[in-house]
């Protein structure tokens, strides 16, 4: 679930508010998005992928977690990791160009 909006990193571009498929955020009075409906979050990582300043963190668990420490997340490289891997952001190469994948044998992949 979405767990962190960093007020230090956020530039109030409203992108996450717009792209979240389940409308989890509201715009705060100070322009920083507020996680208004966390229980609607579907843990899809789309907000993170679209945030230009890596100000968001989506935890993998589908239920709320204790608070995360932003500095520790940044140091571990997890903040903004999905955006980096799919190659979004200035100067990056689209990740899809490298998506060759392993050989999966002869059985058809069915899901």
């Amino acid at each position: 679930m979405i767990e962190l909006v960093s007020p230090e990193r956020c530039i109030s571009c409203d992108k996450c508010i717009k792209v979240c498929p389940t409308d989890v955020f509201d715009r705060g009075a100070d322009g920083i998005p507020v996680i208004a409906r966390q229980s609607d979050c579907q843990t899809c990582f789309q907000c993170e992928a679209n945030c230009p300043t890596d100000a968001l963190f989506v935890a993998p668990q589908t239920h709320p977690q204790p608070p995360f420490d932003e500095l520790a997340l940044a140091e571990s490289g997890l903040l903004g990791s999905y955006r980096a891997q799919i190659g979004w952001g200035r100067g990056r190469t689209p990740g899809s160009l490298r998506a060759v994948g392993p050989a999966l044998g002869t059985a058809p992949i069915t899901s």
């Binding site: 990582f45 997890l78 990791s81 891997q85 799919i86 990740g95 998506a99 994948g101 392993p102 050989a103």
Partner: peptide, 24 residues
């Protein structure tokens, strides 16, 4: 059952598959 080459290729093919593991 994935060898080294397959492991590396999997990461590039489906980065979202690994989001969960990396964060756990």
């Amino acid at each position: 059952r994935a060898d080294e080459a397959a492991r590396a290729a999997m990461r590039l093919a489906q980065p979202n598959f690994f989001l969960t593991f990396d964060r756990l």
